[in-house]
Design a protein around this nucleic acid. Structure first.
Length: 863
RNA sequence: GCGAGAGUGGCGGAAUUGGUAGACGCGCUGGACUUAGGAUCCAGUUCCGUAAGGAAUGGGAGUUCAAGUCUCCCCUCUCGCACCA
């Protein structure tokens, strides 16, 4: 090594070396402690973006650090390869989803390799390959057998023009994202996973995941949405029919004056049949189903409803309650019917006011003006005492919840229940580019599972998408038409829906443990050795869906005895977004940085000359034109600089503000380290790292040696305890600063002390900037790879300080400071402090009333 | 509306259990070396003040010898959920 540091040359050389020596390949080594470090695998969208770079850099540092700490580290990478973008790209570029996907994988693999990540590429997984999804199909069959996968009719977003189902994400303001047609709700028979069976367990374990961010757990808890309440039965007047409702407020039952059914509620048609209101009801229901999407995205839509023409009876008071169908009642929550209590529910209050429905106060607050229907401006939802509730009058409302439910239960009209917001996981997608659901529909036998021996049901990769992006599967000559495995009939059709891509990502981490296993989803022994994942790292945008599905799927695997744990991820780190400032022209909207000229706040638009607005930091996105392409950075600065900046600019869980100058700074620091090592190399080449008594050293060397060990301690703690790489790096920078400001000298111990500082500097930095450190490590005459070196341990004695700065406060204000030997007695510190000139000046002759002394820290004199 | 998180110099961010607020880096200022510097090195850089000193961690109160850190109230921002019965 000599001369200038050329990252591109150095990085290419070491990457080749790592690959040649198979440095990152791992296998089970019983007896050696394992560590499974995994980052969320990418969708092969075309090229990597800064979010990937940040995510994978964090993971790589953890993996490398743990390996140097003696762990057998599994650090895999793969591709979440099924999904819509491939279909869109195929339509746009007149190619095939498979081809597009595989080309992207090839390109992105190259990009990831050039970042120097320590992946065991032999374990690469791509979910679109039959050898992967066949096992997902296999599990689907098992789940079907056990009733964990089932088929039912359900509402979906439907675009009439495109003739297809849309994912929620593809509905924009109630319209199809592609053609703009108004999206309607349509009932289709869909496959579901019974995740609700695990609602309670998934919730309970939210309290048993100490390694997860509080934020994510809270989001999951809210999503699962457990609420305690009662299911009550309301008889319909003059009929055998009953309406069942779920309520969390059975105590307010006597105040229920009307009933609201969701427009989709099956009783709506029945109750309005033959009534004068029938036409109006039908019109309303029709409109509601069309409006569904739009009204969910608008904040101030009107609560509306229509009387069905029928009454039901309040099971407590016998009061006649008009039955409405109303847009605020949701079919997917509770029973789809709401007992409406206008006095004690704000929504019901607004509705009642609009339709002039009666108000009955049944809860009176204890310490406030009594409520009256005439004077109420809003519903009262607080605690209180029951009134107008017959035998329950005077009862505390919390107590009344139980009492009223119990009373109704005796009459067979109610029971305590628990309701969850979580709904079963609909996994059917009317899409082509996904894993086929292994089922067959036979005219005679109905739904028949594909026999295990016929797996995988291979997605025909020769098929092309139909116009409008339609799946070719339903009309595919070989795929759709098939024989019934049960009766042999030729009149059978394959299920042509594919599975939600979230199914694939719910078990890929288990597959990584034995990616080539062709007799099972994964080798149980390998999974037993590696799982669960010790550290999972990814974006918070997956806080609910992917992480909840994975937790569920793992429970399913556990149910089948395939794994012996329930929680797949012991620790989770959610990294923040990568942001950059936006540049906006009043005329031309968002600009690319090079479309503005000038500097600072005085930039103008090149197109029109108007002053531009420098916006605040926002997540990098194409539409905001504030993306930075990792490929360009890589070419300009090399991987190490990019890695360093990503880690140094912010702690991992926070958003990272991109700064071109910050990247320059990181690059400069690496150059500086390189020069520093190069400069000291002749002196330390023959030396052995100092390990003798620190007391023997002259002050300057003693100080450098102390700093070295303090920094080892600090970096180790920062990485181990909290993944705060930014402060770890700043500590190494301090060591670098101390090293470069070391005064000249000729002490005998100098080479050894310098050697210790440099060796440790390189070791500490090596998980962060591995290429440079390999280079320096080799230059120091050490055998490659530095990844096989042991993480340095620090010497308490070497790190210890012998002098401390003691500050002196007078009435809590800093007035003086002095140095004292470490552990000087309090009395002695107090004496020194009271003798200080400046302190005496502030005491101004007054006698101290009290003196607080903290050893090694401060003396506070109170007068 | 509900839930969570955050608010510290010109900027990104430090501050282990209450004990020197601003580590480290960016930027900026001055200087050195240079044909030149957008390289490198040295010095400085929270604000006000020539200084002594004073003020300062979103705002306000409180606990304490001592508060960025603990308690209460308020404000702002970000994220998530959102007609949840």
């Amino acid at each position: 090594m000599q001369g200038r540091y050329e990252p591109s040359e150095v990085e290419a050389r070491w990457q080749a070396h790592w690959e040649k020596t198979g440095l990152f390949k791992v296998c089970e080594e019983p007896g050696k402690p394992k560590y499974y470090c995994m980052e969320m695998f990418p969708y092969p969208s075309g090229k990597i973006h800064m979010g990937h770079v940040r995510n994978y850099t964090i993971g790589d540092v953890v993996a490398r650090y743990k390996r140097m700490r003696g762990f057998n580290v599994l650090h895999p990478m793969g591709w979440d390869a099924f999904g819509m973008p491939a279909e869109n790209a195929a339509i746009a570029n007149n190619t095939h989803p498979a081809r597009w996907t595989y080309e992207n994988i090839a390109y992105m693999t190259k990009q990831l390799r050039s970042m120097g990540f320590s992946y065991d590429w032999d374990r690469e997984v791509a979910t679109c390959k039959p050898e992967y999804y066949r096992w997902e199909q296999w599990l689907f069959l098992k789940m079907y057998e056990k009733g964990m996968a089932y088929r039912k009719e359900a509402d979906v977003n439907w675009c009439e023009t495109c003739g297809t189902v849309l994912a929620n994400e593809q509905v924009e303001q109630g319209q199809c994202w592609r053609c703009g047609t108004e999206v309607i709700q349509k009932k289709l028979r869909q496959w579901f996973f019974r995740i609700t069976d695990y609602a309670e367990d998934l919730l309970e374990y939210c309290n048993k995941l100490p390694g997860w961010p509080e934020k994510v757990l809270t989001m999951q808890v809210n999503w699962i949405g457990k609420s305690h309440g009662a299911e009550l039965t309301f008889p319909v007047e003059g009929s055998e029919t009953v309406i069942r409702v779920f309520t969390t407020r059975p105590d307010t039952l006597a105040g229920a004056t009307f009933m609201a059914l969701a427009p989709e509620h099956p009783l709506v048609a029945e109750l309005s049949a033959g009534k004068p209101e029938e036409a109006a009801v039908r019109e309303f229901v029709d409109r509601a189903s069309r409006m569904e999407r739009i009204r969910r995205t608008s904040d101030d839509y009107e609560k509306e409803g229509v009387f069905t023409g029928t009454f039901c009876l309040n099971p407590l008071t016998g009061r006649k309650m008009p039955v409405y169908t109303a847009n605020f009642a949701l079919m997917e929550y509770g029973t789809g019917a709401v007992m409406s209590v206008p006095t004690h529910d704000q929504r019901d209050f607004l509705f009642a006011r609009k339709y002039k429905l009666p108000l009955i106060v049944v809860i009176q607050p204890r310490d406030a003006e009594p409520l009256s229907p005439e004077s109420m401006a809003e519903a009262y939802t607080g605690p209180g005492v029951l009134v107008n509730s017959g035998e329950f009058d005077g009862m505390d409302n919390e107590e009344a919840k139980r009492a009223i439910t119990a009373a109704l239960e005796k009459k067979g009209l109610g029971k305590q229940t628990i309701n969850f917001r979580l709904r079963d996981w609909g996994i059917s997608r009317q899409r082509y580019w996904g894993a086929p659901i292994p089922m067959i529909h036979c005219d005679k036998c109905g739904v028949v599972p594909v026999p295990e021996s016929d797996l995988p049901v291979v997605l025909p990769e020769g098929a092309d998408l139909l116009p409008g992006g339609l799946s070719p599967l339903p009309t595919h000559p070989y795929f759709a038409k098939t024989r019934c495995p049960k009766c042999g009939s030729e009149n059978a059709r394959r299920e042509t829906d594919t599975m939600d891509t979230f199914v694939e990502s719910s078990w890929y981490f288990e597959r990584y443990t034995s990616p080539h296993c062709d007799t099972a989803m994964f080798d149980p022994a390998a999974a037993r050795y590696w799982m669960p994942v010790d550290q999972y790292i990814g974006g918070v945008e997956h806080a609910i869906l992917h992480l909840l599905y994975s937790r569920y799927y793992t429970r399913v695997l556990s149910e089948f005895g395939l794994v012996d744990f329930k929680e797949p991820f012991t620790r989770l780190l959610t990294q923040g977004m990568v942001c950059k400032e936006t540049v906006k022209c009043p005329e031309h909207g968002f600009l690319f940085p090079d479309q503005a000229e000038g500097s600072g706040q005085n930039r103008t638009c090149k197109l029109c000359g108007k002053p531009v607005v420098i916006g605040r930091m926002e997540k990098m996105s194409k539409s905001k034109r504030n993306v930075v392409d990792p490929a360009e950075l890589l070419a300009r600065y090399g991987a190490d600089t990019v890695r360093l900046f990503c880690l140094f600019a912010a702690p991992p869980e926070r958003d990272l503000d991109w700064s071109e100058q910050g990247v320059e700074g990181s690059s400069r620091f690496l150059m500086r380290v390189f020069r520093l090592v190069e400069q000291h190399l002749p002196a330390v080449a023959e030396a052995k790292s100092y390990a003798d008594d620190p007391e023997k050293l002259a002050p300057a060397l003693r100080s450098l040696f102390r700093k070295t060990h303090q920094v080892i301690a600090k970096v180790t703690r920062d990485i181990e305890d909290r993944f705060h790489f930014n402060t770890a790096i700043s500590a190494v920078m301090e060591l670098t600063n101390e090293l470069s400001s070391l005064p000249e000298g000729t002490e005998a111990e100098r080479p050894a002390v310098l050697r210790a500082a440099i060796e440790n500097l390189v070791l500490l930095l090596s998980p962060i900037v591995p290429h440079l450190c390999e280079e320096l490590w080799e230059a120091l005459g050490m055998p490659p790879s530095i990844l096989n070196a042991t993480w340095p341990s620090y010497d308490e004695k070497a790190a210890a300080v012998d002098e401390v700065t003691v500050v002196v406060q007078v009435n809590g204000k800093l007035r003086a400071r002095f140095t004292a030997a470490k552990d000087t007695e309090e009395k002695e510190l107090e004496r020194t402090a009271l003798g200080d000139e400046n302190v005496l000046r502030f005491l101004n002759g007054k006698a101290p009333r009290k003196v607080i002394t903290v050893k090694n820290k401060l003396v506070n004199i109170v007068v």
